[in-house]
Design a binder for these strands. Sequence first.
DNA 1: AATTTAATTTAGACAAAACTAAATATTTGT
DNA 2: ACAAATATTTAGTTTTGTCTAAATTAAATT
Lengths: 220, 220
Amino acid sequence: MTLSEEDYIKTIYHLSSGQEESISTNAIADQMATKPSSVTDMVKKLSEKNMVNYKKYKGVSLTEKGRLTALSIVRKHRLWEVFLVDKLDFAWDEVHEVAEQLEHIKSDKLIDKLDTYLGNPRVNPHGDPIPSKEGVFKKSVKKLISELPVGSKGVCVGVNDSSVAFLKFLDKNKISLGDSLRIIEREDFDGSVSIVINDREMRISDQIASNLFLEILENK
Amino acid sequence: MTLSEEDYIKTIYHLSSGQEESISTNAIADQMATKPSSVTDMVKKLSEKNMVNYKKYKGVSLTEKGRLTALSIVRKHRLWEVFLVDKLDFAWDEVHEVAEQLEHIKSDKLIDKLDTYLGNPRVNPHGDPIPSKEGVFKKSVKKLISELPVGSKGVCVGVNDSSVAFLKFLDKNKISLGDSLRIIEREDFDGSVSIVINDREMRISDQIASNLFLEILENK
DNA sequence: AATTTAATTTAGACAAAACTAAATATTTGT
DNA sequence: ACAAATATTTAGTTTTGTCTAAATTAAATT
């Protein structure tokens, strides 16, 4: 697989959100900042290699082989993201560009050892799941803390209400996007929730819980 | 700089061993497993970019700009080698291939943070010096332990006598190539030497000391 | 110093991956 | 259902880095 082929496979995977959807050449071209005619050329090549299903004018979808290839790239990308944030102290929103390069490094041994070194993480700093070597992984969903049952754990990935007041509250309480969070207890009376965030326990009101999105792994 | 350009710069640097020697296109072609005519093409391009001095039929040498570029690549290569051995537990002789890929990752921030994370190492697992960000570094030399003064420290990089008996001795005493070693004291009477290797102190005879090569940094 | 040999460069071609412009399908609106 | 608009593909170029074969220069030998 060339670098360029890998980029196409990854883009097709993301555009079809892991499903078997057929993706248009134009959608791929937009996403990759290239031209539709270039996409047609590459897609033919990938079809020759049995990485994608392609019928003229009918769009593209990944074959099983293509899907596994995509998952291996996603695995590498997300493991490197964990490395950059946990070990090298990058901020969670500055890792993408570098991980984009690192994901193309070819060495199974390297990825195995990196995985072990990082403690076999299940999610990247954004809360997205990391596929296993065999391409197995849990889907993740994004939900408000107020919608989740006691015991859930996940990563803060967004806010509903981005008012200055709310963001200030988060800042004051040292809650950042990318932080890991677990729900310990919920008070039925007022909907307030007790959480552990960065090994620190605190209680947040229902208003807060209804404005903070968590990315969690589905337990299927 | 493209990947290919970087490989040429690095090869020219290594063939001229950091000096201003003029290197023949054939030598470069041999080293890179490519054809002399390809080298001529690339060398012209690098000359346009002021990375090398090139006169037809007269060979190639790096300009100052080219030398600094080469040192930056060498720095990245050797820092990644330290990472692979110290953190990921690779053996010292299996890191080259992977480091060869990692050295092309483009991110100054990444390398700065990696350097810090590794504790600003001065040498790679082979005992080769790591240039600073500014391209400054000490030369290294390879000498027998018996030739070095008390106080010297370096990395074991080779043996003079590779007889089975000697290698068995090294194995039994847990001395491996790549190990760090410091000379504590020398007994004038028999030439035996007291050393610290992997935080363990031991005494070796003159025969041993005259058969084990150390790579040390020159203190100029 | 002339000739042979070896090294190096030039010229022309190729493959990968991209692009532009033109041609062809498909979808949409009436 | 048909014309117009949009999406997709084809054909023909371009760039980068490589190659082979031929031409040229430099080095070695006699």
